[in-house]
Computed example of a mutant assay.
Amino acid sequence: MNLCLGVRNINSILNQIGTIFIPVSNIEKARKWYCDLLGLAAAGEILYGHLYIVPMNGMGIVLDSKIYSEENIFKTPVFHFNSNNIEEAYEYIKGRKVELTTEIMHNHWFNFKDPDGNHLMVCKC
Rank of each mutant, 00 (worst) to 15 (best):
F74T: 02
D64T: 09
I10W: 05
A42W: 03
S65M: 01
H80C: 07
F112G: 05
I13Y: 10
P115Q: 15
G6W: 12
I22N: 04
L51T: 04
V122M: 02
I22H: 06
L63P: 01
I17M: 13
I27V: 04
K94G: 06
Y68F: 12
H50R: 05
M1G: 09
A43G: 13
G58Y: 02
T19L: 12
K124C: 05
M59L: 13
F74V: 04
Y90T: 06
L47H: 07
K97M: 08
I53E: 08
Y34D: 15
K124Q: 10
E45W: 01
E28Y: 13
N9D: 13
W109G: 04
L5S: 12
C4L: 13
P55W: 03
V122D: 02
Y52V: 07
F81L: 11
G95K: 09
V24H: 10
I20F: 15
D116G: 00
W33H: 08
M1A: 14
N11K: 07
Y52W: 12
K29H: 08
V78A: 15
N15H: 07
L63M: 07
K97C: 02
I61Q: 05
E71F: 09
L3F: 12
F81Q: 02
S65Q: 04
V7K: 15
G60F: 09
I27F: 06
T102D: 06
I67W: 09
N9H: 04
M105Y: 01
I104K: 04
P23N: 15
K66W: 09
N15M: 06
L63E: 15
P77V: 15
G44M: 13
L120G: 02
C4V: 03
E87G: 03
L38W: 04
P23L: 15
G18P: 00
K113R: 14
L51C: 06
N15T: 00
K124T: 06
G39W: 01
W109C: 06
L47C: 07
I17C: 11
C125Y: 13
E87S: 10
L120M: 05
D114S: 07
D64W: 10
E28Q: 12
S25P: 02
Y52H: 06
K29T: 03
R31V: 00
F74S: 01
C125F: 11
Y52K: 01
P55E: 15
L40V: 07
N2R: 08
K66G: 04
N26T: 00
I61M: 06
M56H: 03
F81W: 02
T101H: 07
K29I: 00
Y34G: 11
V98S: 10
F81H: 04
E45N: 13
M1D: 14
P115L: 14
W109F: 04
V98Y: 05
P115E: 13
Y92I: 00
S65H: 03
I46E: 07
A30Q: 06
F110C: 10
Y52M: 13
I61T: 01
F110Y: 01
S83C: 03
G18F: 12
Y90G: 02
N57S: 14
N107P: 02
V62E: 09
P77D: 09
G39Q: 10
M121F: 05
F79H: 00
C35R: 12
S69G: 09
K94H: 05
K124D: 11
S65N: 04
A30P: 00
A41D: 14
I27T: 06
I61W: 03
N2D: 14
